[in-house]
């Protein structure tokens, strides 16, 4: 998943005694592992939180095309170009499923798009970092998609039916992307000295931003507590970050690359690695719009939307003409 710091009701989880009968019945369905479908009754806060989360995830898929699109025209071989095109096409497809899932909650794709373009809604902080060498295509697949998968796999069991089903499809494709990314890293790490340097440089730049993808620690967050009670969120940010580090460090070792964290050490007691936290002030800067590429990314999306207006208007006008002609003929 590419959603960070999604706000919920902000009021914390209600006790069963404080719930209305409807709310209690709803919570019982969720506790029993049932799926909530669009036409079912749901608390307003559940609906709102889901729209924020699914919307942010969809936006991330859309903006996420840009850092990779930056290298499609410079891909080094025909096969790499084809794989990258297929990947970006998948991402646009993920955006589409997710907007459709959000639409079942009563918000249109155009409304969500406008909130993205105005800066009111966010997308994942990771896509505000630049892709500077071909190795970044490897690092994005390996680390960024790897981090996304950590979140998305449990979300296949999330309580909202359309979201869970979208996630099943998305996960299959994401794990393929991650393997492709790792494959690029393998080629680079075992390549010429210049390629090795690119691979290490990509890891150096993407390691901490990847750790930030999970969001700051949320063990005391009332928003997260409510989302977890509703099974919109399945694990804490720290749990997922730990899992990601534990999975990724041996992969880096296998590549012969060095994780840019001098404090990194295996901890026998917890059965996982101890590692340094990312610089959270940088994270909050990026969230506020001060990441290296925030301005370019939003400008690119706004330009695409503005430049495309005549196309959307034209196709709509044509569809209306055809519909009118059909009615006239009947």
């Amino acid at each position: 998943m590419y959603a960070q710091m999604v706000k919920s009701t902000g009021e914390g989880v209600k006790s069963p005694e404080d719930m209305t009968a409807e709310e209690r019945a709803f919570q019982e369905r969720i506790d029993a592992g049932e799926k909530i479908e669009p036409k079912d009754w749901m608390p307003a806060g559940y609906r709102k939180t889901l729209i924020r989360q699914i919307g942010q995830h969809a936006h991330s898929e859309i903006v996420g095309q840009l850092p990779e699109g930056n290298w499609i025209t410079r891909a080094p071989t025909l096969e790499r170009k084809a794989i990258l095109l297929a990947k970006v096409q998948d991402e646009a497809g993920h955006g589409l499923y997710l907007y459709c899932a959000a639409e079942t909650l009563g918000v249109s794709r155009d409304e969500l798009t406008e909130d993205l373009l105005s800066g009111k809604m966010k997308y994942s902080s990771i896509f505000n970092y630049p892709t500077l060498t071909w190795a970044d295509m490897g690092a994005v697949g390996w680390l960024v998609d790897g981090a996304a998968i950590m979140n998305q796999v449990p979300l296949q069991r999330t309580s909202f039916g359309p979201y869970a089903r979208a996630m099943v499809r998305i996960c299959k494709e994401e794990s393929f992307h991650q393997r492709q990314g790792y494959d690029i890293m393998m080629k680079m790490a075992n390549g010429t000295p210049a390629q090795k340097r690119m691979a290490q440089d990509a890891l150096n730049r993407f390691w901490y931003p990847s750790l930030m993808m999970f969001g700051p620690s949320d063990q005391d967050s009332v928003h997260s507590a409510q989302s977890m009670a509703w099974k919109i969120k399945m694990n804490t940010n720290d749990e997922l970050r730990q899992k990601f580090v534990d999975q990724t460090v041996p992969q880096a070792e296998y590549l012969g690359l060095t994780v840019p964290d001098e404090t990194l050490a295996w901890n026998d007691d917890k059965g996982g690695y101890d590692f340094a936290e990312p610089d959270w002030s940088e994270f909050f800067d990026v969230i506020k719009g001060n990441g290296p590429c925030n301005v370019e990314r939003l400008a690119a999306r706004n330009k695409a939307w503005d430049d495309g207006k005549w196309v959307r208007d034209g196709l709509l006008a044509h569809a209306e003409k055809r519909a009118a002609a059909k009615v006239a003929a009947e």
Partner: peptide
């Protein structure tokens, strides 16, 4: 066609353009 990546007028066109480019590269 691949130069359009991520900047088409509507999401369905992003998908279709990527698909066309992919076929042509294949």
């Amino acid at each position: 066609v691949s130069e359009w990546c991520g900047t088409a007028p509507v999401l369905e066109e992003d998908i279709a353009l990527a698909n066309t480019a992919l076929d042509l590269i294949g």
